Computed example of a mutant assay.
Amino acid sequence: MQRSRRGRTNRERTEATRAALVEAARTLFIENGYAETSTPQIVAKAKVTRGALYHHFTDKRDLFRTVLEQEAEAVATKIGAATSPAMSAKEALLAGSVAYLDAMAVPGRTRLLLIDGPAVLGSSEITAIDAAHAARTLQEGLEALVPGAGGRSITGPAVATLLSAAFDRAALAIEAGADPAEFRAAVLSLVERVIAPVAG
């Protein structure tokens, strides 16, 4: 019994250390950018040892990737929370589109996922992260429209990729100070036009 209690304590301590590193890294990556953030700065902010960092992560890049995966998962969770099985496929796709922009409005998220992410990890790796999260929800939303499409499909990867790029540009514009309501309306209009052949 004593060993089990100690095991839980050690596990909790390990999880807390990892969480502290990820949170400290996220803050510093947003404030300073990836290139200007050093591992000594991260461990100092997290209040852990340098050895603890390398116990959990291979290097700074590995830690950065973990930060991005958590951000991407948060975006997908926000999209999922905005939709429900009671919605039609069209309603869910439109609600998810707005939820994406709302999720990307979290301070620093656009820098992490849309600016530093591709620059540090490269297009293939960042695309894989996106495909497992927000891009997956978009693809699923498009695929849900197929049953009523009369044989016409708009679910090709190219369409999802192009819509995703439009969403990203809208998120960057909002981050830069553009009117969020204007870009939400523009995104909804774009989605409506793209799905019109199968949703009409």
Rank of each mutant, 00 (worst) to 15 (best):
A86V: 15
P147T: 01
A132V: 09
A89I: 06
E125C: 11
D59A: 04
A20P: 11
V43C: 05
A171S: 08
R3N: 12
E91R: 07
R109C: 13
A135M: 14
E36V: 07
Q139V: 14
A52I: 02
A74K: 07
I174E: 01
L112S: 06
A16N: 04
A19G: 02
S4V: 04
A132N: 10
G150S: 00
I42L: 08
A19N: 04
A82D: 00
I30V: 15
V146W: 10
P107A: 13
H55L: 11
R65T: 15
G200L: 13
E69I: 10
T14H: 03
A144C: 14
L21H: 05
S88Q: 00
I42H: 00
E91P: 05
E69L: 12
V120D: 09
V146E: 11
G141T: 02
K78V: 10
A46K: 01
E73V: 03
D59N: 15
S38C: 01
F29D: 06
V120K: 05
R193M: 12
R169M: 12
N10A: 14
A103R: 04
P107W: 14
A89R: 02
A158V: 14
E125R: 12
A166Q: 12
T161E: 10
S38F: 02
D116W: 00
Y54S: 07
E192L: 02
V98M: 09
P107V: 10
A35K: 00
L94E: 06
P118C: 11
R8L: 15
A81K: 05
L172Y: 00
A170V: 09
R193E: 09
T155C: 13
T39R: 01
K60E: 02
A171F: 06
A186G: 09
D179C: 12
A134E: 11
A105K: 14
G148N: 08
A170E: 00
A135W: 08
P107M: 07
G7W: 03
A16G: 03
V98T: 15
G51D: 07
P157T: 11
A20I: 10
A89F: 05
V187F: 08
G200N: 14
R6T: 12
A165G: 09
A119S: 04
T58V: 10
V98R: 15
Q41E: 10
P107E: 13
R50E: 07
A178T: 12
A74N: 08
E12M: 12
N32W: 06
E143I: 11
I42C: 07
T77F: 07
G108R: 03
A166I: 10
G151T: 07
A89D: 09
Q2C: 03
Y100C: 04
P40F: 01
H56P: 06
P180Q: 02
A160I: 05
L114Y: 13
A135V: 11
E15Y: 08
A82Y: 05
I195L: 06
T17Y: 00
T17A: 03
N10S: 14
T49S: 15
L94T: 05
V146L: 12
L138D: 00
V106P: 03
L53Y: 05
L142V: 04
A103W: 09
G148W: 05
A135F: 13
T37Y: 05
G7H: 08
Q70N: 03
A119C: 00
G51T: 06
D168H: 15
E36Q: 14
R6D: 10
S124Q: 14
A16T: 04
G177M: 01
R136I: 05
V48Q: 08
A144G: 12
L145P: 09
A82I: 04
A171H: 06
K60G: 01
E31G: 05
R6H: 11
